[in-house]
């Protein structure tokens, strides 16, 4: 079996195990929280009788492990169950939010990844120059500030003072793509500022590491121009670490956007998760949690495969 297919198989098995573990952890986590959905809906003043009736109705009176197994067998058959709160199928709830989250993540990634890699390459090329220092200081400052702070500063400057962009990123099915791009600019910019530093610095470090190799000296001694040394001779050999850090940040863009969504009232998965946790709506929490975990696993497998493909020594193993 080739390296790549062996790796994919290995990772798929591990991925399924990870998802399983994640679902168990989420379940236990929710169980440990005080109160349940019935309590949430009926409020503090509910009589024990009504609570019990509600619980029976929702199936919350069954022992925890039975409920978990019940849920698990549903998932295994492709049924994520119904939301306890709204009674709508979880899959339906998820779909609209999912496309919003993916849109915002893709939007931020399309700006952030090229900017980060380009800045990293330039910083490595002009190592220790004022440009290098400036980029590093800028990127580190951006990452040191909490994202809600960055978001509010951007809102203050670009929507309140300058009035260029809306403060809230409200979109629905009727919103056109152009409109969505315009309305989501500030949240995308916030996310970009948060992830660029990490990718930029890893790109810079990986390239600088490779620049010390004898084959880079050889390329220079052949009279190869500096930009070509970086792009053609250094970058392919620095690809593996860069791909990995990009994948990690893409995952973050999808699963780590809760705060940014809240600040901009953006109807994404993060908002859905926050609402579901506060109402103890277990099936929704589980579904979102599983989706987030699956995102991580998939992106990491993808990164490993791309790293292997970028290395001719491993490609045909």
């Amino acid at each position: 079996m080739s390296n790549v297919s062996k790796l994919i198989l290995q990772r798929l098995i591990l991925g399924v195990l990870t998802l399983f573990a994640v679902s168990a952890l989420i379940f236990v986590g929710i169980e440990l929280q005080p109160g349940d959905l019935a309590q949430q809906i009926l409020g503090q003043s509910a009589t024990p009788e009504t609570l019990a009736a509600w619980r029976a109705e929702l199936g919350l009176d069954l022992p925890a492990h039975l409920r978990y197994l019940d849920w698990l067998s549903g998932v295994a058959q492709g049924d994520l169950g119904n939301s306890l709160a709204s009674r709508r199928p979880v899959a339906d709830l998820l779909m609209s939010r999912l496309s919003n989250t993916m849109f915002l993540a893709a939007y931020a990634a399309i700006i952030a990844v090229p900017v980060a890699v380009a800045l990293g390459l330039l910083a490595a090329m002009w190592r220790n120059s004022p440009f290098d220092r400036g980029v590093n200081v800028g990127a580190l400052s951006a990452i040191s500030m909490p994202e809600f702070f960055v978001a509010y500063v951007l809102i203050l400057v670009f929507s309140i003072r300058l009035g260029w962009f809306p403060t809230l990123a409200r979109i629905d099915e009727a919103t056109s793509l152009g409109d969505a791009v315009y309305r989501c600019f500030l949240p995308a910019l916030t996310l970009m500022l948060v992830v660029v530093a990490h990718m930029m610095r890893m790109t810079r470090a990986a390239i600088i590491n490779v620049l010390a190799s004898p084959y880079i000296e050889m390329a220079r001694l052949k009279g190869v121009p500096r930009w070509r040394v970086i792009l053609r001779h250094a970058l392919p050999n620095a690809a593996a670490p860069i791909i990995n850090v990009v994948a990690l940040n893409l995952a973050y863009l999808i699963v780590g956007v809760v705060v940014v969504e809240a600040v901009f009232s953006y109807p994404g998965m993060g908002q859905l998760l926050v609402d579901a946790v506060s109402s103890r709506d277990l099936p929704v929490v589980q579904a979102v949690g599983l989706f987030f975990a699956a995102t991580y696993v998939t992106l990491n497998v993808l990164a490993d495969i791309l790293s292997i493909m970028s290395n001719p020594r491993l490609r045909r193993g």
Binding site: Y215, R232, N237
Partner: peptide, 10 residues
């Protein structure tokens, strides 16, 4: 070292 001076990626 020719082994180190050829770029492994090309």
């Amino acid at each position: 070292s020719a082994a180190a001076s050829f770029n492994p990626a090309h």
